[in-house]
Design a protein around this nucleic acid. Structure first.
Lengths: 219, 219
DNA sequence: ATTATTTTTTAGGCATGTCTAAAAATAGTG
DNA sequence: CACTATTTTTAGACATGCCTAAAAAATAAT
């Protein structure tokens, strides 16, 4: 049985591994976990002993097959709970992350499976992220792209945002941006990497921070 | 913010306080928590500093008003989740205790309140125990009585069982005893405190252990 | 190729929550 | 009342998960 901390590390390593195929460095993981590199070293040693990651001193770490499966199961739980909170308990999609962070650590695969069935086997969570099935299989073909990477004059609809601070969700609410919102990139400014977009007829300038966090699907 | 361990201690002290009005002794609490008296001493000191219990060396402990409120909120969460698991996720009433033990520690009063509303403000959990409302108020007038305390020739229906081992639930299942089952006490034996009962036309003998755990409502 | 810089690890400490063994306080008994 | 038995507390230890500071390894730069 894994501790919550161990589970959170697995999740973080999984998440970082989606962006790069090389091993995850200690510093990067420390940043992701909001902790110190020395703490990370301690933990990766422990996870390595448990065969959940492969780790060589000074060489970073990678999930093993077993570790990856575990990580996906945690993500599965997280996303299913988010669906429940939004669809059934009337939470806003911007309030569910923290609660799901807690719920994802409940140990009972029967609970997860019953919940999934109760929710009608949803394929995506309220942020547009795909939900793995019981066997850890899920559609990775989410061809969404960050606003910062979209070419000028291209438009698409919001299919996801990066999990972030509640401040970010406030921001989205303020501009009435949600799943399905149509956004067109009008102009991109290289000097500060900001992006000028068109939403519902209004021009808005997004800083690079924001542009990196909003994902749209083109066409 | 309380740790899970602190919350479990509060719950245990609350539970023991229902059976006796004197202070809860260290040994009794240790037994309830399946831990050692020395560990209990450490914890009660901590809870005492936090003003959740009153504690004098060698004199046992008692919940303060604040501590009692906290305990009731945890019980509220536990029971609401049990209702959810049984009514919505199709769990048997004998499988939900352990999972609810985990879910009761999720920190979000908004979640609890939304869940309560979603469930339609249930008044009792699947074991027949009353569910405190948002303000910690609940009907204590559960006039149920343990089978061991029922007089001969009296009959009633099962309204609750004491949370116990899964072995006990297996036992109940085996004899097809659940909420609503009618039980009549035929004879009581003082030499071993066993009870002979009539269920669905069949005579069954219950040991005192079992008779202490099954609660029926008379009339 | 030899420094300088950055990354990573080690060493030692701290808080939580548990344990065992021993000491202290309380309760029970002749 | 004194002696024994029980209960409770203290003292010291251990695992987890984190920290800081310093050492070691790897990487970059001159």
């Amino acid at each position: 049985m894994l501790t919550q901390s161990e589970e959170n590390y697995l999740k973080a390593i999984y998440s970082l591994s989606e962006d790069q195929k090389e091993a995850i460095s200690t510093n990067l993981l420390a940043e992701k976990m909001s902790t110190k590199p020395s703490s990370v070293t301690d933990m990766v040693k422990k996870l390595s002993v448990k065969k959940l990651i492969s780790y060589q001193k000074y060489q970073g770490c990678e999930l093993t097959v077993v570790g990856k499966k575990r990580a996906i199961q945690i993500i599965r739980k997280h996303r299913l709970w988010e669906v429940f909170l939004v669809n059934n308990l009337n939470f806003g999609w911007d309030e569910v992350h923290e609660i799901a962070e807690q719920l994802e650590h409940i140990h009972s695969s029967k609970l997860t499976d019953h919940l999934e069935e109760y929710l009608g086997f949803p394929k995506v969570d309220p942020h547009g992220d795909p939900i793995p099935n019981k066997n850890g299989v899920f559609e990775k073909i989410n061809k969404s792209i960050a606003l910062s990477d979209v070419d000028t004059a291209v438009k698409g609809i919001v299919v996801g945002v990066e999990d972030g601070s509640s401040g970010f969700f406030q921001f989205l609410k303020r501009y009435e941006i949600g799943l399905g919102t149509e956004i067109k990139v009008v102009e991109k400014f290289n000097f500060d990497l900001s992006v000028l977009v068109l939403i519902d007829g209004k021009e808005i300038s997004f800083s690079s921070v924001v542009a990196n966090k909003i994902f749209i699907q083109i066409k």
